Computed example of a mutant assay.
Amino acid sequence: MVSLMRLLRYGVGIVVVGMALLVAFQEKLVYVPVLPGDTKSYERTPAHLGLTYEDVWLRSSDGVNLHAWFIKLLPDCRGHIRSPFLV
């Protein structure tokens, strides 16, 4: 019984240390592509591609604020337009 409790404590300790290491090194474990000369701050916007956009902030159901870009299909379009790609 004693060895089972000792084994359980070691197992929990290994899991806790492993999770702490994952949190500490998460930016090194996840690949985020960065172009040469760019910073990791993601300063590129749809304007770099010649698109008009609006910054939009959304609140999720758990209260987290999410940033998004609203890109219109055509900047001056009004109403419904039929896409030539839809049959």
Rank of each mutant, 00 (worst) to 15 (best):
D38M: 06
Y53F: 04
I71N: 01
E27Y: 11
L58I: 15
L49I: 01
V32W: 05
T45M: 00
H48A: 09
P75D: 11
C77V: 09
P75Q: 08
V64D: 08
Y42S: 10
T52V: 04
C77Y: 11
L73T: 08
K72F: 06
R82L: 14
L86W: 04
L66F: 10
I81Q: 15
Y10F: 13
L49Q: 02
G11F: 07
G13P: 00
H48K: 07
P84N: 04
L58H: 15
G18E: 03
R59I: 14
R78C: 07
V34Y: 06
R6Q: 12
V17N: 02
H80N: 13
T45R: 01
L86R: 03
M5L: 13
T52C: 01
P46F: 01
W69C: 01
M19N: 07
L21F: 10
N65L: 12
S61L: 13
T52I: 02
L86T: 09
E27D: 14
L51T: 00
Y10V: 12
L86F: 05
V12R: 03
V2I: 15
L49F: 07
E54A: 05
V34Q: 10
L74Q: 08
W69I: 02
V12D: 03
L86D: 10
V56M: 05
V30T: 10
V32S: 09
E27S: 13
V2S: 15
C77K: 11
V15K: 05
V17H: 01
G18Q: 00
L66S: 02
M1Y: 15
L74K: 08
T39R: 03
L86E: 11
L22S: 11
V16N: 02
S41F: 10
V12S: 05
V16A: 11
K28Y: 09
W57Y: 15
V23H: 09
Y31R: 04
P84K: 01
K28A: 05
N65R: 14
V12Q: 05
G50H: 01
I71H: 02
M19P: 00
Y31H: 10
Y31P: 00
P46Q: 04
W57S: 14
F85C: 07
H80L: 13
P75V: 07
M5I: 14
R6K: 14
A24R: 12
A47I: 03
L86Q: 09
V56S: 03
D62K: 11
C77A: 14
Q26V: 00
E27G: 09
L51Y: 02
Y42D: 13
I71A: 01
R78H: 14
F25N: 07
H67D: 05
H67E: 06
M19C: 11
L73H: 08
I71M: 07
